[in-house]
Amino acid sequence: MNLAMDKRIVAVVGHFGSGKTEFCINYALERAKLYKKSALIDLDIANPYFRSREKRSLLESAGIRVFGSFYQSEITAELPALTANARFPLEDKNYAVTIDVGGDASGSMILIQFFKYFIEGDYELLCVINKNRPETSSIEGALSHIYRIEKETGLKITGLINNTHLLRETRVDDIIQGYQFCQELSKELRIPIRFSCCPVLLYEDLCKKDINEAMKDGILPVALHMRETWLDKKP
């Protein structure tokens, strides 16, 4: 996986619960290794829990500045508003910016106000797909989500992220099936599959599988930063 050629601004949209936040945190951490200045903008003003701003200290310790709808240390408030400084890393062209957008078309609407920063060649708008989410488990369902997001934002999605998983029940085959599913979407939409997320523990197994080079190049090993281990404890 080589992130050096990625566009300066990478905004991530998708169905709620598709795994945007985990992707953004893992991606931003990986990306921060390549840039002097990097930032994550948390634009999720729809979800009350599991937002990337909760991992602010982890991100900041990796040199990533975190912006979003919070004031100082207040990260749990439910404010459907943004602080003006969220624009700062978009204005400063030295920043590599990852944008964690809210879920669904309604959550992605917030991007409209940043329209002027989405200059062709300077940004990517990636859509996370998890085939195991009921509403995006069929091609029609996934396409309709994508079209709704595009219609709402007025922006064209430029790439797909295959994040097909079942949390800690994920098997390597789920990821491969998710990739094949994204291949169909990719053909239909004429956009590339940019990444396939793979839990760190399954990374070696996935690499050993007979998968094509394009898929191999796009594997992003993900650690579940947002998920406390007890959440997977059987009660």
């Binding site: 709620f16 619960g17 195991n132 989410r133 009921p134 488990s137 998983h165 079942l166």
Partner: peptide
Amino acid sequence: ERVLMKGNEAFGE
């Protein structure tokens, strides 16, 4: 089959 759901959606379903 197994599907991945958020609690609030699953309550409704």
